[in-house]
């Protein structure tokens, strides 16, 4: 099986100056490794600030100052994205790479009718007549479950419901046959029934094809039910990754265990606490050893001084912990 995307040792820092003009570095990504095989959906989970969305932005090369990628390799179908000139990278964005972000309202141009946006996007990336582009757009809207697609082509973005707008965004992401679909919180804020429809759609478009998708989410249910692989992020590193059936059933990293325990809300309501209520590490001053050590219930002396070995990026479940 070929790998669609390989990410190695991604490090992204925010460099700024404080009030007395000293340089401060927030180390937001601290060596992210990801592998996405063809025909699979990879779930990236973690809490706010774990670096999930930043990983996506770093892969797409859309970081804005003061964020900066300081190390790491990104390979899409054997092509290095990290060393690619901006103009060439731009030909991939919206074409070989499709992106779905959390808020459909902000990713559609409010001044342009739905149909025109779909036509423009095709004509920006390929040699296609307006009529053919229109026909493909209608076909794509039908595939993503938009009722009466011909009429919806004329709709303005503000006329669409949240679920319908997200379908249009997915149609935009897919219209140029991307090899890689990246969906950053694609269903957050949508109702559960709409969520199920959108996720079914993504699964149907990926399973058994030579495409792949990454779903970034904080919803463990989305990962458990729709992804084959999962990468659990904490403080800018992947602390555990592997097949969902293994990682979610028998987690090895103490953070994964705590995260899964937190999903058991019934236990929480009766007073069992999954995580010590402390804040995630200060990115300006990260611990020398394991980044999770200050919160870890199984912490030992070595954890404070030695960073645990990097998980080798094979398909097997791997974890970044001295004791897993």
């Amino acid at each position: 099986m070929t790998d669609i995307l390989k990410v190695r040792g991604l490090r992204t820092h925010f460099v700024s100056r404080n009030a007395v003009n000293e340089i401060r570095t927030a180390r937001a990504l601290n060596g992210v490794d990801l592998t996405l095989p063809a025909g699979r959906i990879l779930g990236v989970v973690g809490e706010t600030g774990a670096g999930k969305s930043l990983t996506v932005q770093t892969i797409l090369g859309t970081l804005k100052a003061p964020a900066e990628r300081v190390a790491g390799e990104i390979e899409l179908m054997g092509q290095r994205l990290d060393t690619m000139p901006e103009a060439e990278l731009n030909r991939h964005r919206g074409a070989t790479i499709g992106l779905v972000v959390q808020s459909p309202v902000t990713s559609l141009d409010p001044r342009v009718r739905v149909g025109d946006q779909l036509v423009r996007l095709q004509r920006a990336h390929r040699d296609i007549t307006r009529a053919d582009a229109r026909a493909r757009a209608i076909d794509m809207l039908k595939r993503v479950g938009v009722p009466s697609p011909q009429e919806r082509m004329k709709a303005w973005p503000h006329e669409l419901s949240g679920g319908m707008a997200q379908r249009v965004v997915i149609a935009m992401a897919l219209i140029n046959d991307p090899v890689l679909l990246i969906a950053d919180e694609p269903t957050t804020g949508l109702d559960v029934t709409v969520q199920a429809q959108i996720l079914d759609l993504i699964r149907d478009l990926i399973a058994g094809t030579d495409r792949g998708a990454i779903i970034v989410t904080h919803d463990l249910g989305v990962v458990a039910q729709y992804c084959e692989h999962v990468a659990v992020m904490y403080s800018g590193v992947v602390v555990e990754h592997g097949p969902v059936d293994e990682v979610f059933v028998a987690p090895r990293h103490p953070y994964t265990t705590a995260l899964l325990a937190a999903a058991d809300l019934a236990a929480a309501a009766t007073g069992r606490r999954p995580l010590p209520p402390s804040t995630p590490p200060n990115l300006y001053d990260l611990p020398a050893g394991c980044l999770f050590a200050p919160r870890c219930p199984k912490v030992q002396a070595v954890c404070a001084t030695e960073p645990p070995a990097k998980p080798s990026p094979s398909g097997q479940a791997e974890t970044r912990c001295h004791f897993a």
């Binding site: 559960v192 199920a196 989305v222 990962v223 729709y226 059936d245 059933v249």
Partner: peptide, 24 residues
């Protein structure tokens, strides 16, 4: 029933029978 069947369990071994959701 539809609402409950669309709820996603965080346990990959739990697969609920999904009831179809029609229209809007």
């Amino acid at each position: 029933r539809t609402l409950l069947s669309a709820q996603l369990s965080a346990d990959p071994r739990v697969t609920r029978e999904r009831l179809p959701i029609l229209g809007e």
